[in-house]
Every structure is written in C-alpha cells, then in structure tokens.
C-alpha cells in the first residue's frame, strides 16, 4: 500500500528489554518486538496484562532508555509527542485549563481551546482542580491535554481502564470525535479486544511475556460503519486468525 520511499512515521525495532531487580532477578519483558504504524493511522497494541505494553510505551516516550534496539518516531510536522497515561496524571495543584496549557509549547500557550473543551464536555470545568473531577472527567482532561498539543504522534496507555462500561464507551466515542477532527498517528495500548476493534485501523497483537508481535489485524472498514453486526463479524474473523487471543 505504501508508495516506495514514503516515510514510515513510527517504526519500532526493540531487540530486548530486560528488568533487573536489586536482588539479581531479571525479567525479560520484550524480545524482538518490531512493528510499524503508518502516517495518520490509529493503531492498537493488544496483549494480555503484564506482557510488556506499558514497558513498550515508556521506551517510545523516551522514559526508559535501558533497552537494546531502536525505534524511529514520526518526523516532520510538529515533531512533538503526547501521551495519555494509564492514570490521568494531572497536576492536582493546577486547574484543568492550566494543566492543559502547561503542556503546550510556549508558542501555543495562548491558543483558543474552546472547541476542544466543548467537544470533550469540559467547557464548564476549566477552572476546577483535578480533585474535584470524577475519574472519567479527569481522563477527558488528560485527553484534552494530549490533543491540545497537536502532536505528531499520540500514545495512549489503556486510557479507559477502571471506568464503568457506560463511561468508557462514551469516552471512546469522544476520543474518536477529537481524533477524527485532526487524525494523528496514534498508538494505543489495550487488553480489550472490542475496544481495539472499535477504534483502530490496525491491531498489533502481542504474545505473553517476553512479548513480540504475533500478527497484525487490519480493520479497513471506516469507523462509522462498525455497527454491532459488523463488530461481531470482526470479532469472529479476529478469533479465526488468533484463536488463542481472548
């Protein structure tokens, strides 16, 4: 599909990542993990709990430099990265709006955020402190912060975990809305297959620890056509290709 010579926006080639504890016990989390995410594509890393998804994201975010291998982040455009962490990680001593603006580069600090806050249903909460928000609202604020920076690539680490299903579903739709307004190369980590099928263009399926890629499942269908009938078809064909993955 890719024309010859086109830039690969996100290219990951991690040979190995091993944790060494102080007592000399070592855990190999990643082994020969390589995959690509294309420009403007929403990809999901799907794998069981504890397989090394967060570890992978932390390496890509530059937070863990102790690994062997290499990766290449998208070049061109803003050259910025944004992350929605497993916890909202808002600064409790700053308001919602301050939290969002602080993450912006100086040149964008004063930009108009009305549209983004409106879309995410945060318009009335800009001056609240994070402690005054429910977890669902705090997650929305974390999404607002990530999208406000207009990143070249966006990383999300199970952003809907520990929410009730109804809230999680509403947030998935909100995520799709803001993402569609400005499609950004995105890599989301999840262990929820239904979520991955609903949101992504391609699903990168990971093995249990030490993790590597089992295979890639492309979802070519436009998202607005993924109704419940289509979703169960997708589920069936996914299970057909990956019978061991739940």
């Amino acid at each position: 599909m890719q024309p010859v010579g086109a830039v690969v926006p996100l290219k990951v080639d991690i040979a190995e990542k091993t944790f060494r504890s102080a007592r000399g016990v070592s855990i190999t989390a990643l082994q020969d993990l390589s995959f690509e995410v294309r420009q403007g594509e929403f990809a999901c890393l799907l794998g069981p709990s504890g397989c090394g998804k967060t570890t992978t994201l932390r390496i890509l975010l530059g937070l863990d430099k102790d690994f062997s291998g290499s990766f290449q982040l998208p070049q061109g455009g803003s050259n910025r990265i944004a992350a929605v962490f497993q916890e909202p990680t808002l600064l409790p001593w700053r308001t919602v709006e301050q939290n969002v603006r602080l993450a912006l580069p100086k040149s964008l600090r004063a930009k108009n955020l009305d549209g983004l806050f409106d879309t995410l249903g945060l318009a009335g909460m800009r001056s609240l402190y994070p402690a005054e928000l429910s977890l669902g609202l705090a997650r929305r604020a974390a999404l607002a912060r990530a999208f406000a920076t207009e990143p070249a690539v966006l990383f999300l680490d199970e952003p809907f975990v520990s929410l009730d299903e109804q809230t999680a579903e509403r947030l998935r739709h909100l995520l799709l809305t803001v993402w569609s307004a400005r499609p950004t190369t995105a890599l989301m980590v999840t262990h929820n297959l239904r979520e991955a099928l609903m949101l992504s263009d391609r699903i990168i399926v990971l093995a249990p620890r030490p993790t590597h890629v089992l295979g890639v499942f492309d979802v070519r269908l436009p998202r607005q056509h993924r109704n419940s009938q289509v979703m169960s078809d997708l589920l069936r064909s996914f299970h057909h290709r990956f019978p061991d993955v739940t």
Partner: peptide, 24 residues
C-alpha cells in the same frame, strides 16, 4: 516520578518544572 515523566513527555522547560512540578 509520574509528574516528572509527564513533564518530560510534554517537554516542560526547566523553570516550569521547578514552578509547577517540584515546588507544589
């Protein structure tokens, strides 16, 4: 450390780190 990591990802400047992450 999670606040410092957030600041790294979003490329906070040194002064912003001190003022908004460290001092509070």
């Amino acid at each position: 450390p999670s606040y410092a990591e957030m600041a790294t990802v979003y490329r906070f400047g040194r002064l912003d780190r001190i003022r908004h992450i460290l001092l509070p």
